[in-house]
Design a binder for these strands. Structure first.
Length: 122
DNA sequence: GCCATGGCTAGTA
DNA sequence: GCCATGGCTAGTA
């Protein structure tokens, strides 16, 4: 045995391996289930994919959306109804949402609860 | 380190 | 406003 400590490897101890990777494709699949005129949130998508803590990762996946035209990532906003980010800028995101019938009150999606949907996998 | 988040806390009006 | 979260990226050696 000896006393050698392989400290470099400690961070790979299996009890710490709690990560679950979210795939880009499953995020995009969920996005396609958000109809025009509705919004969802980064956290809701993360939850639907089984990793409630991964909202941030969802955001980063949307940021590299290869096809912003087809995949409606503009329909994903923050959990408090603020607009959130967009590849072409928040102003453009807001325009797209307004074209679909979403309006804003003090920078927050109006009637947020009414227009919020919770897309599910399957 | 960074980040297209989220949730909670303090502390102002 | 602050900081926990979790996975990825840039950029060094």
């Amino acid at each position: 045995m000896g006393n050698i400590n392989h400290q470099k490897h400690l961070k790979y101890d299996d009890e710490n391996l709690t990560q679950s990777t979210i795939k880009d494709s499953e995020v995009y699949d969920l996005l396609l289930k958000i109809p025009a005129g509705k919004v969802s949130t980064y956290g809701d998508l993360a939850k639907a994919l089984g990793n409630p803590l991964a909202s941030r990762q969802v955001g980063r996946i949307l940021a590299r959306n290869p096809n912003p035209i087809k995949v409606p990532c503009h329909r994903v906003v923050m959990s408090d109804g603020k607009i959130g980010g967009y590849f072409y800028g928040s102003d453009r995101k807001r325009e797209l949402l307004e074209e679909e019938g979403i309006s804003f009150t003090d920078e927050i999606v109006s009637n947020f609860k009414k227009v919020r949907v919770y897309p599910q996998k399957q």
